[in-house]
């Protein structure tokens, strides 16, 4: 198994880089689109809806193909890592947008009204009152999405990136030792997912600190 390590480590680097990069993209996209879905302006809502449905309604594999292989034909060219981060991030962000929208709409209208009665501006109300409450509800589903994202990174071999799964497949082809290679692969993905789960758990506990949601507000 020691012979596998260099290849697996280089795959691990690619997988971790893509996961972290795409998480950052997804974070921004999810908040932007999730809040835009609740905008008072119809075109803004429409734009967000198009983005969300486009990315949720087509598979990440196909999106990778279009961004990496087709966009260069119209002069838009990303290197493979950028294309991978962008596509996986926007794909996860489309699901995340619904998480953001759902959590924001779950905040009772009365909270907006109380903020309004205290003369907070809409931006202040959102930032100080609504988001801090909504974010707590976003963390567990965001953790799920992040782990989904981790597993989705296995698709990037389509665009010539040597992620963990790709390296494992290559090792398998070279050594024909499917069992040990896949056992190692399983172990690494599991550890990565557990690390992420732990991180999101910590975040959730930190954000929820001191709050008690029992009863009337």
């Amino acid at each position: 198994m020691v012979d596998y390590l260099p290849a697996m480590l280089s795959g691990l680097k690619v997988t971790v880089l893509l996961t972290l990069g795409a998480m950052a993209v997804a974070f921004v996209a999810a908040f932007a689109a999730g809040m835009a879905r609740l905008s008072r302006r119809a075109p803004v809502r429409g734009l967000a809806l198009v983005y969300i449905e486009l990315f949720r309604g087509t598979s990440a594999l196909v999106q990778l193909f279009w961004v990496y292989f087709a966009l260069p034909l119209v002069g838009i060219r990303f290197d493979a890592v950028t294309a991978g981060i962008l596509v996986l991030g926007l794909n996860t962000g489309a699901y995340g947008a619904e998480v953001v929208r759902g959590a924001l709409s779950a905040i009772p209208r009365e909270q907006y009204q109380a903020a309004w009665a205290l003369n907070l501006s809409p931006a202040q109300a959102l930032w100080r009152v609504i988001l801090p409450q909504a974010v707590i509800a976003m963390v567990p589903p965001a953790g799920n999405l992040a782990i989904e994202l981790l597993k989705n990174t296995a698709l990037v071999s389509l665009i010539t990136l040597g992620d963990l799964t790709f390296q494992a497949q290559t090792l398998r082809a070279a050594t024909l030792e499917s069992g040990p290679v896949f056992a190692l692969l399983l172990g690494i993905y599991f550890l990565l997912a557990q690390t992420m789960r732990f991180g999101f758990r910590r975040l959730e506990n930190r954000l929820a600190h001191g709050q008690d949601y029992g009863g009337v507000r």
């Binding site: 292989f69 087709a70 260069p72 034909l73 060219r77 010539t160």
Partner: peptide
């Protein structure tokens, strides 16, 4: 097929 797309895209 991906390789062919890669050629066409100038990758």
């Amino acid at each position: 097929p991906s390789a062919l797309s890669g050629m066409r895209a100038g990758r």
